[in-house]
């Protein structure tokens, strides 16, 4: 990441008071996302996951940190790169992996696929694969909360590349003028699909440097430090819940793998990945736990439990049948069917 925002702690915020329980939970979330994503990658190469899939390897701290700051009832709006954010809200692994494998156990029984993970009961209000489309949708959810006097906050995750599409700008202005309880989380992993974001963007920080155009605070944080993400998100949620309107948070991060399964990421300059691997969020956080005196036994217990969960979920998914053929024509319309004529 560029030198200007190495300060991993937002001014005035000390993260030292985050308690051990929260820390262990932040660690658990990151490790489970990491292990599940790695398993997704393996399953892909065994041809057990078809189509495409977009991993968040290297970006786990953002999904974990934001989810940790959320309350039950808060709503997540995710992208095609949304396995992490879905898992972070507590969706069981087998339902995520099952959907990636297009099996009947999957969240949508295979009807949506990896890019559209949705679990309304966990507050995951869909994963959207048209760049930028879900920013206005998250605004609408926030508008509903405001209108009905409900206290939930809507959170919208997206990438750096998404800041250059019109819907991003329409949504930010809209959220700002209506003072909507929505938090926009930009995960700046430095690349759109294959093109470096800096090559196609007029400002250095594609989200934060646009914030002032919508009357919003400029916020750039270390997206590989779960504590920082957690605390920054917490502040944004408090503001949203108190009627203070939207926030836009740019989290600096890096994806360890290619854009999607098909991408070997040859376009990355030599040494870049290695540099970021040193700042691996899971590694950073494991060290953080030690720094705060959490025992090795507690850490390894989480690691072991995560591995166990992944194995169990994988076996369950492999044993699950594909979705029944009847599903082909269900739920096109609200009556449950697909009829367009009498």
């Amino acid at each position: 990441m560029s030198g200007k925002h190495t300060g991993s702690r937002k001014a005035g915020l000390s993260n030292d008071d985050i308690g051990p329980e929260t820390r262990l939970e932040l660690y658990r979330l990151q490790v489970e996302i990491r292990d599940c994503e790695k398993r997704a990658n393996d399953l892909f190469f065994q041809n057990l996951i078809k189509g495409t899939s977009h991993l968040s390897l290297g970006q786990e701290a953002i999904a974990a940190g934001v989810a940790m700051a959320m309350q039950p009832g808060d709503k997540s709006f995710c992208t095609y790169r949304g396995h992490a954010h879905t898992l972070a809200r507590g969706v069981p692994m087998e339902q995520v992996l099952g959907e990636l494998m297009l099996r009947d156990v999957g969240l949508m029984r295979g009807k949506g696929g990896s890019m559209h993970l949705t679990s309304v009961e966990h507050g995951v209000m869909g994963s959207y694969a048209i760049i930028g489309a879900h920013l206005p949708i998250a605004c609408g959810s926030a508008w509903r909360a405001q209108y009905l006097g409900q206290k939930d906050v809507s959170v919208c995750f997206f990438g750096d590349g998404t800041t250059n599409i019109g819907a991003f700008h329409e949504a930010l202005n809209f959220a700002a003028i209506w003072k909507l309880p929505v938090v926009f989380i930009c995960e700046n992993n430095l690349y759109m699909e294959y093109t470096p974001i800096g090559d196609v963007t007029a400002v250095e920080h594609p989200a934060a440097d646009r914030a002032s155009a919508y009357g919003l605070e400029r916020i750039v944080v270390d997206g590989n430090d779960a504590d920082v993400v957690y605390r920054t998100a917490q502040a944004a949620f408090v503001k949203a819940r108190d009627g203070g309107g939207p926030s836009l948070i740019e989290c600096m991060t890096y994806r360890h793998s290619g854009h999607s399964r098909a991408d070997p990421a040859k376009y990355r300059p030599e040494g870049e990945l290695e540099k970021w691997l040193e700042r691996d969020p899971v590694k950073i956080y494991r060290e953080r736990l030690r720094e705060f005196g959490i025992s090795e036994a507690e850490i390894t217990a989480i690691d072991a439990e995560s591995k166990r969960k992944v194995e169990a979920a994988t076996e369950l998914c492999k044993a699950s049948p594909p979705a029944p053929a009847e599903l082909l024509t269900t739920d096109v319309y609200a009556d449950g069917g697909w009829s367009w004529r009498n």
């Binding site: 949708i137 609408g140 959810s141 508008w143 509903r144 209108y147 329409e170 949504a171």
Partner: peptide, 26 residues
């Protein structure tokens, strides 16, 4: 003004917001 709202010239925001509101109860 709470129920009948003027918007900016932002057709994507208009339809997107309508959708987000619709899928969560309005």
């Amino acid at each position: 003004p709470r129920r009948v709202r003027d918007t900016p010239i932002s057709e994507q925001a208009i339809l997107g917001a309508a959708m987000g509101a619709a899928m969560t109860g309005l």
